[in-house]
Nucleic acid binder design. Structure first.
Length: 888
DNA sequence: TGCCCATCT
DNA sequence: GTGTTAGATGGGCAG
């Protein structure tokens, strides 16, 4: 059997991988998706082929012989996205580290190198596989040379293979004739001009009939479609030129060496280090070297017998005592289990790492008590997600101060991550590549995993405790280095308990009323549906933007063209402008609103009512980029209020018997924060003097006496006020206010003239963000702004808006967090029955016992006011009601 | 899964 | 000259 060589078209496969693999970035901010995809394709093919030799060819950025021939020739590669471009040198480095030959040659494209090497190797008697995403390479196919075109479909890579005969089958022409076809039809992406008016079909037919461009020209008068005949006759020169351009050179001067192409050990230590740096975790298993993490795995153990468990606790106590001299005694712990705890994972040092099932004599109560003792003794007790553990920890006030939530610390250090799983923390803060829960257990729940995959289960839970133990120290250092320790200790950690209390409390819902509300919506929806079908003259799925677009813009021929990538835009603002054209439009808008109300709110909320008649939402503390909290399952932070029909839903949220709702919200907190942070004298003055800030703004910006400001002026000023906070453009403002862009620009200009301090402040934020790479809130919370480094205008502009908005939104978030912690603590300390139950960004909702209303109002007012000391007053609006509708 | 559209501050 | 207001969650559709 002959030996085999694989030749890879480097740029082409990188390019394919770049677009086929979702964006990946390592901790250094380096994009890695193209490299990752390339390696996946390469490994797959090497395994399939069992090849003996491998070489990768790249293009060089230099003019080629094609440029000399044809001045307008721009090269076969389009300008590369920056995110891809930066991956090319790294890719070459990775290949180098694996001992893989990389060839490139000025004056030629990779295609030509591949053609030449492929022919050379075929002559040497080797089997050749050429891997490329580019079908031009098909011209190289013979019965010994196979062209392989990988396609990424749903995450998996499939490869199309072409020997010469496969090309004939698929394209009806031989590989050589394939060049002629391409020359005739042209190729815009390759800048091959082609012959005008001849497309793929005609080109193929001509070459099938005549064999080549030259022969076709000899018989040009016979060519069938008249159009094609004339085209070829008039543009024969061009066709010949294109043919030369499209022909891959097979005898160029190539720096190729068969010796160097010989495959050796790919998995070298150098490659290992690079893979680790690139964070290609699941590729590391290909390496046969011992990873440091495996050492610690040797100490993972499951402890079941009471006697052994007692020994473990004694041992940990000893370790803690020894470490306490250094003020660095620390445990890592994680309760495992969903509803009912299965057991406790513990770590104290590199050697004492174990999992203790709660079964037999080792009861949950016993474990709780022992854990409590450890927490009391250690300087720090670290876990991954404290809120989820609080139900299983006996807390003392002293214990509270020792608890350390690794996820929250990691969130403060980088709030942009979408996951803070233990394997992410280990990678980021410990430099350890360890298997994730998904890697070990797949989608199994804890209970199933413990039974079915005991070994992997043990590995997983021990890694969790170990990561918590070890990362806590690094995270603590990180918080100190970034000046966020105080924020962590006085805001984020205490907030864990507040949110836990709120989740436990939940909010009472009148499920019957909710059901009736949903049914009423259903009736109206059915009516609307019929009317819409009738007016459209057909039945279709109104909730499908695609179908709706076709009905509105094609069948009913309403004006307004394409807007989205996939078709017509049918967003509310587009449809509102169309409302006068056809009555159906407003019915559709109403239909949309009602189906939203029914599916998300009426039916959606009903599904979350627990046995106690209350909805217990989850408040997430590590989700948003700015420091706000978020609410899920269900989201209680987006309950309708603007439209009356939707607002009615709030009537089903009621206080418990004997209670009343008290709702307090900060008045324009973000604008006040802006006034304070910018130190703009005029804006501060405006807030100190006027109750109505929008009117005051209108008065100052439009140079109109305060009492003569028209409603229009006030509402415009209000829009500008909001826009400024978000970094709006004149275009955006003009859209929002239905005014010309010029007028909008004028408003913004006047605003900044009136409040020059604001302008300066916002500009400085962007400058600071560009220099430091992040922005901060008043309380030191950071948000990185990597978009500012992008070469893409849009991304960069986004970064600028982020730099302007995040400190404002984030400071407001800090303030209400502080307020809610103190409100909750005072309710508890004063032994009140009233409970804080919701936070909606600038609003707190309390279920207050009727006997405590006055005291609760006092607490809310005091704590919300004193949460921050601003140079403008912090004002709050407070309402009382028998349900959430009334209390707002 | 990604897109579109709705909802909130 | 680009596209053009920050931060979220969730339902439904289409491939």
């Amino acid at each position: 059997m002959s030996e085999k060589i694989v030749l890879i078209d480097g740029h082409s496969i990188l390019n394919r991988a770049f677009f086929g693999v979702p964006d990946l970035t390592n901790s250094d901010g380096l994009h890695t998706n193209a490299i990752y995809g390339f390696l996946n394709i390469m490994f797959k093919i090497l395994e399939e082929e069992q090849a003996d030799y491998l070489t990768v060819a790249f293009d060089v950025h230099a003019p080629t012989f094609r440029h000399e021939m044809f001045g307008e020739y721009k090269g076969t590669r389009k300008p590369m996205a920056d995110e891809l471009h930066q991956q090319v040198p790294v890719m070459k480095e990775v290949l180098g580290a694996m001992g893989i030959q990389v060839i490139e040659q000025a004056g030629y494209e990779a295609d030509d190198l591949l053609g030449t090497v492929s022919k050379h190797c075929e002559e040497l008697g080797l089997d050749v596989s050429v891997v490329s995403g580019d079908r031009d390479l098909l011209q190289l196919a013979t019965d010994k040379v196979k062209i392989r075109i990988p396609k990424t479909k749903r995450g998996t890579t499939e490869v199309e293979d072409y020997y010469a005969e496969d090309v004939c089958k698929r394209y009806q022409v031989t590989p050589t004739q394939f060049i002629d076809v391409k020359a005739l039809m042209g190729d815009a992406s390759d800048n091959i001009p082609g012959v005008p008016g001849i497309g793929e079909k005609t080109a193929t037919k001509i070459i099938v009939d005549y064999g080549s461009i030259e022969n076709a020209y000899e018989h040009v008068e016979e060519i069938k479609p008249n159009r094609a005949k004339e085209a070829l006759r008039d543009h024969y020169d061009m066709a010949q030129m294109s043919k030369t351009l499209a022909t891959i050179c097979v005898d160029c001067d190539v720096p190729f060496s068969l010796d160097k192409a010989k495959l050796g050990e790919l998995y070298t230590p150098e490659a290992y280090n690079l893979f680790k740096q690139l964070e290609f975790k699941n590729m590391l298993s290909r390496f046969h070297v011992e990873v440091p993490a495996q050492k610690v795995e040797g100490h993972f153990r499951k402890v079941t017998l009471l006697q052994d468990v007692e020994e473990v606790f004694q041992n940990i106590q000893k370790i803690l005592e020894a470490d306490s001299e250094k003020k660095d005694s620390r445990i890592g712990f994680v309760w495992i289990g969903e509803e009912e705890p299965l057991g406790l994972a513990l770590a104290c040092g590199d050697k004492e790492i174990c999992y203790i099932p709660a079964e037999g004599f080792v009861t949950e109560e016993y474990l709780k008590e022992q854990l409590g003792n450890l927490i009391a003794k250690a300087d720090a007790a670290a876990t991954l997600d404290l809120k989820s553990q609080l139900g299983r920890i006996t807390l003392t006030d002293a214990g509270k101060e020792r608890l350390f939530d690794c996820n929250i610390a990691a969130y403060l250090l980088n709030p942009l991550k979408d996951s803070y799983s233990y394997d992410d923390l280990a990678k980021e803060y410990l430099g350890l590549m360890i298997p994730s829960r998904m890697d070990l257990l797949g989608k199994s729940g804890w209970t199933a995993a413990q039974e079915e995959k005991p070994q992997e289960f043990l590995t997983c839970v021990c890694y969790m405790a170990y990561t918590a133990w070890r990362a806590a120290k690094e995270l603590m250092e990180g918080l100190k280095d970034t000046d966020m320790l105080r924020l962590f200790q006085t805001v984020e950690m205490p907030l864990v308990y507040t949110l836990y209390d709120m989740e436990q409390a939940g909010i009472l819902v009148q499920s019957e009323e909710l059901k009736i509300y949903g049914e009423e919506l259903g009736v109206r929806i059915a009516q609307l549906e019929q009317s819409i079908y009738q007016m459209a003259g057909e039945e279709f799925n109104i909730n499908s933007p695609k179908q709706l677009g076709v009905v509105l813009f094609e069948h009913l021929k309403l004006p307004g063209g394409k807007k989205t990538k996939t078709g017509f835009s049918t967003a509310a603002d587009v449809l509102e402008k169309l409302a006068p054209e056809n009555e159906i439009v407003s019915l559709i808008l109403e239909y949309r609103q009602l189906t939203k109300l029914k599916s998300t709110y009426a039916d959606g909320l009903a599904a979350y009512i627990a046995a106690d008649g209350r909805i217990h939402s989850t408040f997430n503390q590590t989700i948003t980029a700015t420091g706000r909290i978020s609410s899920t399952e269900p989201n209680l932070q987006n309950i309708p209020i603007r439209m009356e029909l939707g607002r009615l839903i709030r009537k089903v949220f009621i206080p418990a018997p004997g209670c009343v709702f008290i709702d307090a919200d900060y008045s324009q907190i973000e604008l006040r924060v802006l006034a304070h942070m910018s130190e703009d004298e005029n804006l501060i003055h405006a807030y100190r003097e006027a109750a109505d800030i929008h009117r005051m703004t209108a008065s100052q910006v439009f140079h109109t006496p305060f009492d003569e400001v028209s409603p229009q002026q006030r509402s415009n000023a209000k829009a500008v006020n909001f826009g400024i906070v978000y970094g709006i453009s004149s275009f955006g403002l003009s859209q929002g206010l239905s005014i010309t862009r010029k007028e909008a620009a004028d408003y913004i200009g006047k605003y900044f003239e009136t409040y020059p301090g604001v302008k300066k402040f916002l500009d400085n934020l962007v400058v600071h963000a560009k220099e430091e790479g992040y922005v901060t809130t008043m309380f030191g919370r950071r948000r990185p702004v990597p978009e500012l480094k992008s070469s893409n205008f849009m991304q960069r502009s986004f970064g600028e808006r982020v730099a302007m908005n995040s400190p404002i939104q984030g400071t407001a978030a800090d303030i209400i967090k502080i307020a809610m912690i103190h409100v909750n603590e005072r309710l508890k300390k004063e032994k009140l029955k009233s409970r804080l139950i919701l936070q909606v960004h600038d609003e707190l909702l309390i279920e207050a016992d009727r006997s405590e209303v006055e005291e609760v109002q006092k607490i809310l007012s005091e704590e919300m006011h004193r949460a921050a000391d601003l140079s403008v007053p912090l004002e709050i609006d407070m309402h009382e009601g028998e349900n959430w509708y009334e209390a707002k």
